[in-house]
């Protein structure tokens, strides 16, 4: 058991799933340049080999491309379904960080709802990606500004809908909305913390709670997202 927050304890075991070899090599090189304690234990170019590799190596974090060939044709979502319940040697669930070039809301929402712990775009810097991997490994969520924007839209937060109680799944609480807004504005977690006078840990808690809502909510916009998006 590695306690979250002490990343130096053991290198994070990472599997890279992307159908472009050039991209895999590039990401690996970039992450190695940051000097982050990462151990690349495997990589896979498509859904079926990804599921196999992940089941064999049981990594801490899988960097998962949203669009992949193979499987049922649903790309990253199929990998997530194929690896449901797989645990690492330490007994933690294998965690997934979606990495995508796609801005399409339905793709993002689909992988998050299938169980990914976060979503970042491929233009992310190596340092930010390393931080993201560490966060996901520790069980926290990683939101790109764009995902935060999606969330605000999907939960009607931009339209002023705010949950009365934090536990409400279909709406964001006022604090969660603030955190999402700051992330959408491009703030790092520690900047968000400073801005709201809370600790980074609290920010992480809020983001994780938003992730949970995103995964569990039955809100109509989340299920019929694409349609609603086009109607606007």
């Amino acid at each position: 058991m590695t306690s979250p927050g002490t990343p130096a304890a053991a290198p994070i075991r990472v599997v890279l799933v992307d159908d472009h070899r050039m991209f895999r090599t590039g990401v690996k090189a970039e992450l190695e340049d940051t000097g982050a304690p990462l151990d690349f234990v495997g990589e896979a170019p498509d859904v079926d080999s990804a599921v196999k590799v992940i089941r064999e190596t049981t990594p801490d974090v899988v960097l998962l491309d949203v669009h992949l060939p193979g499987g049922m044709g649903n790309g990253g979502v199929d990998v997530l379904h194929g690896c449901a319940g797989v645990e690492t040697a330490a007994g933690q669930p294998v965690r997934f960080l979606a990495l995508s070039v796609s801005d399409a809301a339905e793709d993002v929402i689909a992988v998050i709802r299938a169980g990914a712990r976060g979503y970042v775009t491929k233009t992310i810097s190596g340092t930010d990606l390393a931080t993201g991997i560490r966060r996901v490994a520790a069980g926290d969520a990683v939101f790109s500004p764009r995902l935060a924007g999606f969330v605000l839209d999907a939960f009607g937060a931009a339209a002023g809908e705010i949950a009365e109680v934090d536990e409400e799944l279909d709406r964001l609480s006022a604090r969660e909305r603030e955190v999402m807004r700051l992330i959408a504005r491009g703030y790092q977690y520690k900047e968000v913390a400073k801005e709201l006078f809370i600790s980074v840990k609290t920010v992480e808690t809020h983001v994780s709670s938003v992730l949970r809502k995103l995964q569990l909510s039955n809100r109509h916009e989340l299920t019929a997202w694409a349609m609603g998006r086009r109607l606007i």
Partner: peptide, 19 residues
């Protein structure tokens, strides 16, 4: 860079941030 723009239009008005 990175330069980010965030735009929110809602019932409480419009807010835009350039960072």
């Amino acid at each position: 860079p990175p330069i980010r723009v965030y735009l929110e239009a809602g019932p409480s008005g419009v807010e835009a941030f350039v960072r």
